[in-house]
Protein backbone atom coordinates (compact mmCIF):
# COMPACT_ATOMS: atom_id res chain seq x y z
CA UNK A 1 0.00 0.00 0.00
CA UNK A 2 2.85 2.37 0.83
CA UNK A 3 4.24 1.92 -2.66
CA UNK A 4 0.91 2.77 -4.24
CA UNK A 5 0.73 6.26 -2.79
CA UNK A 6 4.24 6.96 -4.01
CA UNK A 7 2.98 6.86 -7.54
CA UNK A 8 2.02 10.43 -8.46
CA UNK A 9 1.31 10.16 -12.13
CA UNK A 10 0.49 7.14 -14.19
CA UNK A 11 0.27 7.88 -17.88
CA UNK A 12 -1.15 5.03 -19.91
CA UNK A 13 -1.54 4.88 -23.69
CA UNK A 14 -1.61 8.63 -24.05
CA UNK A 15 -2.39 9.84 -27.54
CA UNK A 16 -2.43 13.56 -28.18
CA UNK A 17 -3.33 14.56 -31.71
CA UNK A 18 -3.43 17.97 -33.32
CA UNK A 19 -5.80 18.87 -36.10
CA UNK A 20 -4.06 19.76 -39.34
CA UNK A 21 -6.32 20.48 -42.31
CA UNK A 22 -9.20 18.61 -40.75
CA UNK A 23 -7.32 15.48 -39.71
CA UNK A 24 -5.81 14.64 -36.37
CA UNK A 25 -2.16 13.63 -36.22
CA UNK A 26 -0.74 12.20 -33.00
CA UNK A 27 2.15 14.26 -31.66
CA UNK A 28 2.33 11.97 -28.64
CA UNK A 29 1.66 8.44 -29.76
CA UNK A 30 0.96 5.76 -27.16
CA UNK A 31 3.06 7.22 -24.37
CA UNK A 32 3.37 5.28 -21.11
CA UNK A 33 5.18 6.97 -18.25
CA UNK A 34 5.07 7.06 -14.48
CA UNK A 35 6.22 9.68 -12.03
CA UNK A 36 6.92 8.79 -8.42
CA UNK A 37 7.25 10.94 -5.36
CA UNK A 38 10.80 12.28 -4.81
CA UNK A 39 11.67 11.61 -8.41
CA UNK A 40 12.83 13.80 -11.26
CA UNK A 41 11.66 12.31 -14.50
CA UNK A 42 13.38 13.83 -17.51
CA UNK A 43 11.69 13.66 -20.87
CA UNK A 44 14.38 14.38 -23.42
CA UNK A 45 14.30 14.70 -27.19
CA UNK A 46 14.76 17.09 -30.07
CA UNK A 47 12.23 19.67 -31.18
CA UNK A 48 9.08 18.11 -32.53
CA UNK A 49 9.47 14.84 -30.63
CA UNK A 50 6.33 15.46 -28.59
CA UNK A 51 7.86 16.18 -25.20
CA UNK A 52 6.06 19.49 -24.67
CA UNK A 53 2.85 17.91 -25.91
CA UNK A 54 3.02 15.56 -22.96
CA UNK A 55 3.40 18.48 -20.57
CA UNK A 56 0.37 20.32 -21.94
CA UNK A 57 -1.64 17.09 -21.93
CA UNK A 58 -0.90 16.46 -18.25
CA UNK A 59 -1.92 19.94 -17.17
CA UNK A 60 -4.81 20.07 -19.62
CA UNK A 61 -3.75 23.27 -21.32
CA UNK A 62 -4.31 22.85 -24.99
CA UNK A 63 -6.62 24.20 -27.64
CA UNK A 64 -9.60 21.95 -27.03
CA UNK A 65 -11.04 22.52 -30.48
CA UNK A 66 -7.99 21.35 -32.35
CA UNK A 67 -6.52 18.79 -29.99
CA UNK A 68 -7.67 15.26 -29.28
CA UNK A 69 -6.38 13.55 -26.14
CA UNK A 70 -7.11 9.90 -25.40
CA UNK A 71 -5.68 7.40 -22.94
CA UNK A 72 -5.29 7.84 -19.21
CA UNK A 73 -3.34 10.27 -17.09
CA UNK A 74 -4.01 9.06 -13.59
CA UNK A 75 -3.32 11.30 -10.65
CA UNK A 76 -4.35 9.64 -7.39
CA UNK A 77 -6.89 7.51 -9.25
CA UNK A 78 -8.33 10.63 -10.84
CA UNK A 79 -8.15 10.58 -14.61
CA UNK A 80 -7.00 13.98 -15.86
CA UNK A 81 -7.93 13.16 -19.44
CA UNK A 82 -11.33 14.66 -20.13
CA UNK A 83 -11.63 16.12 -16.62
CA UNK A 84 -14.08 19.02 -16.52
CA UNK A 85 -12.53 22.48 -16.41
CA UNK A 86 -13.75 23.59 -13.01
CA UNK A 87 -12.38 20.45 -11.37
CA UNK A 88 -9.16 20.79 -13.32
CA UNK A 89 -8.79 24.40 -12.14
CA UNK A 90 -8.77 23.09 -8.56
CA UNK A 91 -5.82 20.87 -9.43
CA UNK A 92 -3.84 23.22 -11.64
CA UNK A 93 -1.65 25.47 -9.54
CA UNK A 94 -2.57 23.57 -6.38
CA UNK A 95 -1.58 19.95 -6.96
CA UNK A 96 0.33 20.47 -10.20
CA UNK A 97 2.65 23.44 -10.66
CA UNK A 98 4.04 24.44 -14.00
CA UNK A 99 7.28 26.20 -14.97
CA UNK A 100 7.74 27.46 -18.50
CA UNK A 101 10.66 28.13 -20.78
CA UNK A 102 10.68 31.89 -21.28
CA UNK A 103 10.28 33.63 -17.91
CA UNK A 104 9.72 37.07 -19.43
CA UNK A 105 6.94 35.94 -21.73
CA UNK A 106 5.32 33.79 -19.07
CA UNK A 107 4.77 36.70 -16.67
CA UNK A 108 2.06 39.31 -17.19
CA UNK A 109 3.98 42.46 -18.16
CA UNK A 110 1.46 44.82 -16.56
CA UNK A 111 1.13 43.12 -13.17
CA UNK A 112 3.48 43.33 -10.20
CA UNK A 113 5.28 40.03 -9.78
CA UNK A 114 4.23 39.66 -6.16
CA UNK A 115 0.59 39.94 -7.14
CA UNK A 116 1.05 37.32 -9.83
CA UNK A 117 2.33 34.87 -7.23
CA UNK A 118 -0.42 35.85 -4.79
CA UNK A 119 -3.00 35.11 -7.49
CA UNK A 120 -2.24 31.40 -7.19
CA UNK A 121 -2.91 31.54 -3.46
CA UNK A 122 -6.15 33.45 -3.99
CA UNK A 123 -7.66 30.58 -5.94
CA UNK A 124 -6.43 27.68 -3.82
CA UNK A 125 -6.32 28.86 -0.19
CA UNK A 126 -8.55 30.67 2.29
CA UNK A 127 -5.78 33.16 3.08
CA UNK A 128 -6.66 36.81 3.52
CA UNK A 129 -4.75 39.42 1.62
CA UNK A 130 -2.18 40.04 4.36
CA UNK A 131 -1.56 36.32 4.74
CA UNK A 132 -1.11 35.92 1.02
CA UNK A 133 1.39 38.77 0.99
CA UNK A 134 3.32 37.17 3.84
CA UNK A 135 3.33 33.82 2.06
CA UNK A 136 4.65 35.40 -1.15
CA UNK A 137 7.49 37.00 0.81
CA UNK A 138 8.22 33.62 2.35
CA UNK A 139 8.24 32.05 -1.12
CA UNK A 140 10.54 34.74 -2.48
CA UNK A 141 12.94 33.97 0.33
CA UNK A 142 12.68 30.28 -0.42
CA UNK A 143 13.56 30.72 -4.10
CA UNK A 144 16.50 32.91 -3.15
CA UNK A 145 15.30 36.35 -4.16
CA UNK A 146 17.07 39.24 -2.45
CA UNK A 147 14.97 42.00 -0.84
CA UNK A 148 11.64 40.17 -1.23
CA UNK A 149 9.53 43.14 -0.06
CA UNK A 150 10.96 45.29 -2.84
CA UNK A 151 10.69 42.48 -5.35
CA UNK A 152 6.99 42.08 -4.58
CA UNK A 153 6.26 45.46 -6.13
CA UNK A 154 8.48 45.03 -9.19
CA UNK A 155 7.25 44.49 -12.72
CA UNK A 156 8.68 41.59 -14.76
CA UNK A 157 10.74 43.81 -17.05
CA UNK A 158 12.56 45.26 -14.06
CA UNK A 159 14.03 41.88 -13.09
CA UNK A 160 16.90 39.90 -14.57
CA UNK A 161 16.23 36.64 -16.39
CA UNK A 162 17.30 34.54 -13.41
CA UNK A 163 15.07 36.46 -10.99
CA UNK A 164 12.12 36.21 -13.35
CA UNK A 165 12.48 32.46 -13.48
CA UNK A 166 12.61 32.43 -9.67
CA UNK A 167 9.29 34.30 -9.64
CA UNK A 168 7.81 31.70 -11.99
CA UNK A 169 9.11 28.94 -9.71
CA UNK A 170 7.66 30.69 -6.65
CA UNK A 171 4.35 30.80 -8.49
CA UNK A 172 4.52 27.10 -9.33
CA UNK A 173 5.37 25.98 -5.79
CA UNK A 174 3.13 28.46 -3.94
CA UNK A 175 0.60 25.78 -2.96
CA UNK A 176 3.20 23.06 -2.38
CA UNK A 177 2.14 20.96 -5.36
CA UNK A 178 2.87 17.26 -5.48
CA UNK A 179 3.81 17.46 -9.11
CA UNK A 180 5.93 20.11 -10.79
CA UNK A 181 6.16 20.19 -14.56
CA UNK A 182 9.16 22.13 -15.82
CA UNK A 183 9.12 22.65 -19.58
CA UNK A 184 12.63 23.65 -20.69
CA UNK A 185 13.01 25.76 -17.52
CA UNK A 186 16.58 26.87 -18.24
CA UNK A 187 16.79 27.01 -22.02
CA UNK A 188 16.39 30.80 -22.13
CA UNK A 189 18.94 31.40 -19.38
CA UNK A 190 22.70 31.86 -19.22
CA UNK A 191 24.69 28.83 -18.21
CA UNK A 192 25.61 30.13 -14.74
CA UNK A 193 21.98 31.06 -14.07
CA UNK A 194 20.90 27.67 -15.42
CA UNK A 195 23.05 25.94 -12.83
CA UNK A 196 21.49 28.00 -10.03
CA UNK A 197 17.94 27.37 -11.20
CA UNK A 198 18.52 23.62 -11.51
CA UNK A 199 20.02 23.52 -8.01
CA UNK A 200 17.01 25.41 -6.73
CA UNK A 201 14.61 22.95 -8.35
CA UNK A 202 16.44 20.05 -6.77
CA UNK A 203 16.39 21.70 -3.36
CA UNK A 204 12.67 22.37 -3.62
CA UNK A 205 12.03 18.79 -4.60
CA UNK A 206 14.05 17.43 -1.69
CA UNK A 207 12.20 19.66 0.78
CA UNK A 208 8.71 19.07 -0.51
CA UNK A 209 9.06 15.46 -1.68
CA UNK A 210 7.30 16.33 -4.86
CA UNK A 211 7.82 14.70 -8.23
CA UNK A 212 9.21 16.75 -11.09
CA UNK A 213 8.67 16.18 -14.78
CA UNK A 214 11.64 17.91 -16.42
CA UNK A 215 11.24 18.44 -20.13
CA UNK A 216 14.45 19.36 -21.90
CA UNK A 217 16.54 18.94 -25.02
CA UNK A 218 19.78 19.31 -23.08
CA UNK A 219 21.46 16.01 -22.26
CA UNK A 220 23.85 17.75 -19.87
CA UNK A 221 20.93 19.04 -17.82
CA UNK A 222 19.46 15.54 -17.79
CA UNK A 223 22.73 13.98 -16.62
CA UNK A 224 23.03 16.51 -13.80
CA UNK A 225 19.50 16.46 -12.43
CA UNK A 226 17.34 13.53 -13.53
CA UNK A 227 16.62 10.28 -11.71
CA UNK A 228 14.64 8.62 -14.48
CA UNK A 229 14.96 9.43 -18.15
CA UNK A 230 12.58 8.90 -21.05
CA UNK A 231 14.06 9.51 -24.50
CA UNK A 232 11.52 10.49 -27.12
CA UNK A 233 11.63 10.32 -30.87
CA UNK A 234 8.82 11.20 -33.28
CA UNK A 235 6.08 11.12 -30.65
CA UNK A 236 7.14 7.88 -29.00
CA UNK A 237 9.23 6.97 -26.00
CA UNK A 238 12.09 4.95 -27.49
CA UNK A 239 14.06 4.26 -24.33
CA UNK A 240 13.43 4.64 -20.65
CA UNK A 241 15.73 3.87 -17.75
CA UNK A 242 17.41 5.41 -14.75
CA UNK A 243 19.82 8.21 -15.52
CA UNK A 244 22.98 6.16 -15.02
CA UNK A 245 21.86 3.46 -17.40
CA UNK A 246 20.85 5.95 -20.06
CA UNK A 247 24.27 7.57 -20.09
CA UNK A 248 26.41 4.53 -19.43
CA UNK A 249 24.56 1.72 -21.20
CA UNK A 250 22.28 3.30 -23.74
CA UNK A 251 20.75 0.73 -26.07
CA UNK A 252 18.40 2.36 -28.51
CA UNK A 253 20.15 3.59 -31.69
CA UNK A 254 18.61 7.03 -31.29
CA UNK A 255 19.86 7.47 -27.72
CA UNK A 256 23.30 6.33 -28.75
CA UNK A 257 23.37 8.61 -31.78
CA UNK A 258 22.23 11.60 -29.78
CA UNK A 259 24.89 11.07 -27.12
CA UNK A 260 27.47 10.77 -29.87
CA UNK A 261 26.57 14.08 -31.41
CA UNK A 262 27.30 16.01 -28.20
CA UNK A 263 30.42 18.16 -28.54
CA UNK A 264 31.81 16.88 -25.27
CA UNK A 265 34.65 14.64 -26.29
CA UNK A 266 38.19 15.71 -25.60
CA UNK A 267 39.18 14.66 -29.07
CA UNK A 268 38.56 17.99 -30.75
CA UNK A 269 39.79 17.06 -34.19
CA UNK A 270 37.08 14.43 -34.45
CA UNK A 271 33.97 15.21 -36.41
CA UNK A 272 30.77 15.10 -34.45
CA UNK A 273 28.32 12.32 -35.06
CA UNK A 274 25.51 13.26 -37.42
CA UNK A 275 22.20 11.42 -37.66
CA UNK A 276 21.26 10.91 -41.29
CA UNK A 277 18.12 12.57 -42.57
CA UNK A 278 15.80 14.83 -40.63
CA UNK A 279 13.10 14.48 -38.02
CA UNK A 280 9.84 13.90 -39.93
CA UNK A 281 7.24 16.63 -39.47
CA UNK A 282 4.02 15.75 -37.67
CA UNK A 283 2.02 15.27 -40.83
CA UNK A 284 4.53 13.03 -42.55
CA UNK A 285 5.56 10.96 -39.56
CA UNK A 286 5.73 7.28 -40.46
CA UNK A 287 2.90 5.56 -38.62
CA UNK A 288 3.96 2.01 -39.36
CA UNK A 289 7.10 0.16 -38.42
CA UNK A 290 10.10 1.63 -36.61
CA UNK A 291 10.00 5.42 -36.93
CA UNK A 292 13.76 5.68 -36.55
CA UNK A 293 14.49 3.08 -39.24
CA UNK A 294 14.74 5.67 -42.03
CA UNK A 295 17.61 7.35 -40.24
CA UNK A 296 19.68 4.20 -39.87
CA UNK A 297 19.19 2.77 -43.37
CA UNK A 298 22.23 0.48 -43.16
CA UNK A 299 20.42 -1.63 -40.58
CA UNK A 300 18.45 -4.31 -42.50
CA UNK A 301 14.68 -4.24 -42.23
CA UNK A 302 14.71 -7.71 -40.74
CA UNK A 303 16.37 -6.32 -37.62
CA UNK A 304 13.35 -4.10 -36.95
CA UNK A 305 10.09 -5.32 -35.53
CA UNK A 306 7.04 -4.99 -37.75
CA UNK A 307 5.16 -3.28 -34.97
CA UNK A 308 7.87 -2.11 -32.60
CA UNK A 309 6.92 -2.71 -28.99
CA UNK A 310 8.61 -1.55 -25.83
CA UNK A 311 10.60 -4.34 -24.19
CA UNK A 312 11.93 -4.45 -20.68
CA UNK A 313 15.51 -5.45 -21.43
CA UNK A 314 16.63 -5.38 -17.84
CA UNK A 315 14.53 -4.50 -14.81
CA UNK A 316 13.57 -0.85 -15.24
CA UNK A 317 15.25 -0.47 -18.62
CA UNK A 318 12.77 -0.22 -21.49
CA UNK A 319 13.71 -0.10 -25.16
CA UNK A 320 11.48 0.18 -28.20
CA UNK A 321 12.00 -2.25 -31.10
CA UNK A 322 14.63 -4.97 -31.29
CA UNK A 323 16.90 -3.20 -33.75
CA UNK A 324 19.30 -2.21 -30.97
CA UNK A 325 20.56 -5.80 -30.77
CA UNK A 326 22.47 -5.64 -34.04
CA UNK A 327 22.93 -1.89 -34.19
CA UNK A 328 26.32 -0.50 -35.14
CA UNK A 329 27.48 2.89 -36.30
CA UNK A 330 28.70 3.39 -39.83
CA UNK A 331 32.42 3.99 -40.23
CA UNK A 332 32.12 7.10 -42.38
CA UNK A 333 28.98 8.56 -40.91
CA UNK A 334 30.43 11.90 -40.09
CA UNK A 335 29.39 14.71 -42.34
CA UNK A 336 26.57 13.05 -44.16
CA UNK A 337 23.59 15.27 -44.77
CA UNK A 338 20.37 14.36 -46.40
Amino acid sequence: MEKQSDLLLDIQHLHTGYRLQGKFYDAADDVNLTLKRDEILAIVGESGCGKSTIASSIIGLYDHKNTKVTGDILYNELNLVGLNESLFNKIRGDKIGMIFQDPLASLNPLMRVGEQVAETLYYHTDMKEAARHARVIELFNQVGMPKPEEMYRMYPHELSGGLRQRVVIAMAIACKPEIIIADEPTTALDVTIQAQILDLLEDIQKQSHSGIVLITHDLGVVAETADEVAVMYAGQVVEKADVKTIFEHPLHPYTRSLLNSMPQSDDESEDLHVIQGTVPSLKYMPREGDRFAARIPWIPASDHEKEPAVHEVEPGHWVRCTCWKNFHFQADQKVSGE
Binding site: I59, L61, E85, S86, F88, N89, K90, I91, R92, G93, D94, G97, M98, F100, S106, L107, N108, Q116, E119, T120, Y123, H124, V168, M171, A172
Partner: peptide, 9 residues
Protein backbone atom coordinates in the same frame (compact mmCIF):
# COMPACT_ATOMS: atom_id res chain seq x y z
CA UNK B 1 -1.10 30.16 -20.33
CA UNK B 2 0.71 30.77 -17.03
CA UNK B 3 -2.44 32.21 -15.51
CA UNK B 4 -4.38 29.14 -16.63
CA UNK B 5 -1.68 26.88 -15.19
CA UNK B 6 -2.28 28.52 -11.81
CA UNK B 7 -5.88 27.35 -11.92
CA UNK B 8 -7.38 30.76 -12.61
CA UNK B 9 -10.90 30.24 -14.04
Amino acid sequence: RTARSKGVP
